[in-house]
Nucleic acid binder design. Structure first.
Length: 210
DNA sequence: GTTCTAGAAC
DNA sequence: GTTCTAGAAC
């Protein structure tokens, strides 16, 4: 049909994790970086038939890993009841790899305490589960959005995601509510004190190292 | 996802 | 005057 010819006035669509098969981000666009890591042995911490683990390129804590399926699944919207065992496997691998990395680094306390989960609205176009130590001491942790994406309900626990998937056969995300969470006050995840700026919060986090 | 930087906040 | 945040990036 001739009507499918695009006009020059059509807005350029920014690639994002919303893209599904047939509408993927351009190969070298930043949002496609994880797909490249799947095939790049030099950045891999662990790999098996089903999933790959890498170090986050901009870690938001001392230990920050990403677990991704080898299969091209864009995000949680593309996940269905056929993926339950895959997500369970990713969580298991994430836990085992975290323990190994922590042991090797002689990590203690919050440096060896991890959360496993997904961002409600990810930026990268390949499903990825965060494995992140709870110290949050990192130069790459800079913005309120960074903080709230890991410490508010915006961070969806992997076990809860798996439970929801088993119960419903899909994952639903309230994007309006989630986007608002990123503007939350800066609240310490350990003692609930509030801070007015990121530098003040980051200074405070040092106090929780025991 | 990050970088850069204008101007808000202090 | 300096620190800090927040929005554009073609």
């Amino acid at each position: 049909m001739a009507s499918s010819l695009s006009s020059t006035s059509e807005k350029r669509k920014t690639p994002s994790s919303d893209n599904v098969n047939g509408n993927q981000p351009k190969k070298n666009h930043w949002s496609a970086a994880l797909s490249a890591a799947i095939d790049d042995e030099s950045v891999q911490v662990y790999k098996d038939d089903l999933c790959t683990v890498i170090n986050d390129k901009f870690p938001k804590a001392c230990i920050h890993l990403l677990v991704m399926p080898n299969e091209n699944i864009a995000n949680l919207k593309s996940v269905n009841n056929t993926h339950v065992s895959l997500l369970k496997h990713m969580l298991k691998v994430g836990k085992e790899t975290a323990e190994k990395v922590a042991a090797k680094a002689n990590a203690r306390g919050s440096f060896a305490h991890f959360r496993y989960g997904y961002h409600a609205i990810p930026s990268m176009a390949l499903l990825h589960m965060h494995v992140i130590s709870q110290d949050f001491i990192s130069d790459s942790l800079k913005t309120k959005k960074h903080w709230n994406s890991f410490t508010s309900d915006y961070f969806l626990d992997a076990s809860q995601v798996i439970d929801d998937l088993q119960a419903n056969g899909f994952i639903r995300v309230d994007t309006v509510r989630m986007r608002k969470l990123l503007d939350n006050e800066l609240t310490c995840h350990r003692c609930s004190n509030n801070f007015t700026t990121m530098p003040k919060l980051k200074q405070h986090l040092l106090m929780h190292i025991s």
